[in-house]
Computed example of a mutant assay.
Amino acid sequence: MTDSLKQKILEVCDKKIAQKGINVGISIYAFFKNKNDTPELLMEAATWWIKTHQLNHFEKAVKIKALVNSF
Protein backbone atom coordinates (compact mmCIF):
# COMPACT_ATOMS: atom_id res chain seq x y z
CA MET A 1 0.00 0.00 0.00
CA THR A 2 1.39 3.38 -0.98
CA ASP A 3 1.89 6.04 1.65
CA SER A 4 -0.56 8.37 -0.12
CA LEU A 5 -3.36 5.79 0.00
CA LYS A 6 -2.58 4.91 3.60
CA GLN A 7 -2.71 8.58 4.61
CA LYS A 8 -5.96 9.15 2.72
CA ILE A 9 -7.66 6.14 4.37
CA LEU A 10 -6.53 7.17 7.84
CA GLU A 11 -7.72 10.76 7.34
CA VAL A 12 -11.15 9.65 6.13
CA CYS A 13 -11.53 7.11 8.94
CA ASP A 14 -10.55 9.67 11.57
CA LYS A 15 -12.99 12.22 10.14
CA LYS A 16 -15.89 9.75 9.99
CA ILE A 17 -15.20 8.45 13.51
CA ALA A 18 -15.06 12.02 14.86
CA GLN A 19 -18.35 12.88 13.14
CA LYS A 20 -20.39 9.75 13.83
CA GLY A 21 -18.63 7.73 16.52
CA ILE A 22 -16.74 4.47 16.69
CA ASN A 23 -19.52 2.38 15.18
CA VAL A 24 -19.56 4.24 11.86
CA GLY A 25 -19.31 2.06 8.78
CA ILE A 26 -17.55 3.05 5.59
CA SER A 27 -17.13 1.64 2.12
CA ILE A 28 -14.18 1.77 -0.20
CA TYR A 29 -15.88 4.62 -2.04
CA ALA A 30 -15.57 6.88 1.03
CA PHE A 31 -11.96 7.54 0.00
CA PHE A 32 -12.77 8.82 -3.48
CA LYS A 33 -14.80 11.55 -5.15
CA ASN A 34 -17.75 10.59 -7.34
CA LYS A 35 -15.58 11.50 -10.31
CA ASN A 36 -12.95 8.83 -10.93
CA ASP A 37 -9.96 11.15 -11.32
CA THR A 38 -7.40 8.74 -9.79
CA PRO A 39 -8.09 5.31 -11.31
CA GLU A 40 -4.71 3.87 -10.27
CA LEU A 41 -5.34 4.77 -6.63
CA LEU A 42 -8.86 3.37 -6.81
CA MET A 43 -7.57 0.07 -8.20
CA GLU A 44 -4.91 -0.10 -5.50
CA ALA A 45 -7.56 0.46 -2.82
CA ALA A 46 -9.95 -2.04 -4.41
CA THR A 47 -7.26 -4.70 -4.57
CA TRP A 48 -6.37 -4.12 -0.92
CA TRP A 49 -10.03 -4.04 0.20
CA ILE A 50 -11.52 -6.84 -1.91
CA LYS A 51 -8.74 -9.19 -2.95
CA THR A 52 -6.22 -8.93 -0.12
CA HIS A 53 -8.56 -8.65 2.87
CA GLN A 54 -11.86 -9.90 1.40
CA LEU A 55 -13.78 -7.17 3.23
CA ASN A 56 -17.51 -6.59 2.93
CA HIS A 57 -18.89 -3.57 1.11
CA PHE A 58 -19.32 -1.73 4.43
CA GLU A 59 -16.90 -2.18 7.32
CA LYS A 60 -16.37 -0.34 10.58
CA ALA A 61 -13.99 2.58 10.19
CA VAL A 62 -12.08 1.49 13.31
CA LYS A 63 -11.47 -1.92 11.70
CA ILE A 64 -10.15 -0.35 8.49
CA LYS A 65 -7.97 2.03 10.47
CA ALA A 66 -6.50 -0.87 12.48
CA LEU A 67 -5.78 -2.85 9.30
CA VAL A 68 -4.04 0.09 7.67
CA ASN A 69 -1.98 0.81 10.79
CA SER A 70 -0.81 -2.81 10.91
CA PHE A 71 1.35 -2.22 7.82
Rank of each mutant, 00 (worst) to 15 (best):
N34P: 10
E40R: 13
D37F: 13
I22P: 00
F71W: 09
V12G: 05
D3Q: 15
S4E: 15
V62E: 01
K6V: 05
F71G: 04
N56T: 08
K60N: 01
W49G: 06
T2Y: 13
T47R: 10
E40S: 12
T47W: 06
H57T: 11
C13W: 06
S27D: 08
W48A: 01
A46F: 09
C13Y: 04
W48H: 01
K16V: 05
I26M: 12
S70H: 05
S4W: 15
S27P: 10
F71I: 06
T2I: 10
I17M: 01
M43F: 13
L10N: 03
D14R: 07
A61E: 02
Q54A: 09
K51Q: 11
I22L: 02
F71P: 04
K33T: 15
S70K: 01
K63F: 06
K63W: 00
I28S: 07
D3N: 14
K15D: 12
A30H: 12
N69D: 02
K60E: 01
V68I: 10
H57F: 12
K33Q: 14
I26G: 06
L41W: 12
M43Q: 15
F31E: 04
C13D: 07
N36D: 15
L55N: 08
A66D: 09
D3G: 11
T2L: 09
I17P: 00
I17V: 09
V12K: 05
A18Q: 09
F58Q: 11
F32N: 09
K15V: 08
K60P: 00
N36I: 13
K33C: 13
V62M: 03
N56P: 11
K20E: 04
K16T: 01
K8Y: 09
F32V: 11
K60V: 02
Q19R: 07
Q7F: 10
L42G: 11
K20G: 00
V12N: 07
K15F: 08
P39S: 14
K33E: 13
M43P: 10
S27R: 08
D37C: 11
E59K: 05
N34I: 12
K63P: 00
I28M: 06
I26L: 12
K33Y: 11
K51P: 04
I50Y: 10
F32K: 12
E59C: 09
N56E: 11
V24Y: 00
L41Q: 15
K63M: 04
C13S: 06
T2K: 10
I17G: 03
I50V: 11
T38Y: 14
N69E: 09
K6R: 14
K15I: 05
W48N: 01
V24P: 01
N36P: 10
